[in-house]
Computed example of a mutant assay.
Amino acid sequence: MTFRRIAIVTVASRGIGRAIALRLAKDGFSVVANYRSNAAKAQEVVDEITALPSKTEYPVRAMAIQADAGNPADGKRLLDETIKAFGRLDIIVLHAGWAGECSIHDLTEDMYLTATTANIKGPIFIAKAS
């Protein structure tokens, strides 16, 4: 099967990442909705994308892939699984999104390290693997 354009959107299960994934799909991209922990929310994005009417002769497809974008091995697996499913990859939207759900006064070192790993280290190593 031939696909028009293929995109990965990291943190696509919610918020801005979800909106980016849906916009790309409306523009004809097949989308890999990456998520770290909420498979149900990622599947909602996939379901919404696959319900969109096709505007071209190319099918718009979607799939969810679990991967921690802050883990280089997971980032490589995300790319590999995308290429295995679609045959290629055209764009990666490295949407950094995890910032925690607390005020600066409640921020712990572990929370800070999780955020910087997901938002800084992850995109660098995903780009390196592509």
Rank of each mutant, 00 (worst) to 15 (best):
M1V: 08
T2M: 06
T2V: 11
T2A: 10
R5G: 10
I6Y: 08
A7G: 11
I8P: 07
I8H: 09
V9A: 09
T10C: 09
S13F: 06
R14T: 15
G15W: 10
G15K: 07
I16A: 00
I16T: 07
G17D: 14
G17V: 15
R18W: 08
A19K: 02
A19D: 14
L22G: 00
A25K: 04
F29V: 06
A33W: 15
A33S: 09
A33V: 10
N34L: 02
N34C: 00
Y35A: 06
Y35E: 00
S37H: 02
S37T: 01
N38R: 01
A39T: 05
A39Q: 04
A39W: 07
A40E: 06
A42V: 15
A42Q: 10
A42C: 11
Q43D: 12
Q43K: 05
V45W: 12
D47L: 01
E48K: 11
T50D: 11
P53N: 11
P53C: 13
K55P: 00
E57K: 04
P59A: 09
M63A: 07
M63E: 10
Q66Y: 00
Q66G: 13
A69C: 11
N71K: 02
P72Y: 00
P72R: 09
P72S: 12
A73E: 13
D74T: 06
G75R: 00
R77L: 14
L79W: 09
L79K: 15
I83D: 12
F86L: 06
G87C: 04
G87A: 04
L89I: 09
D90Y: 05
I91D: 05
I92A: 04
V93P: 07
L94C: 06
W98A: 03
A99H: 01
E101L: 04
S103E: 06
I104G: 01
H105K: 07
D106A: 04
L107M: 15
T108K: 05
E109Q: 09
D110T: 11
A115C: 12
T116S: 07
T117H: 14
I120G: 03
K121G: 13
K121R: 13
G122W: 08
I124N: 10
I124P: 08
F125R: 00
F125D: 09
F125V: 09
A127N: 08
A127M: 04
A127S: 10
S130V: 06
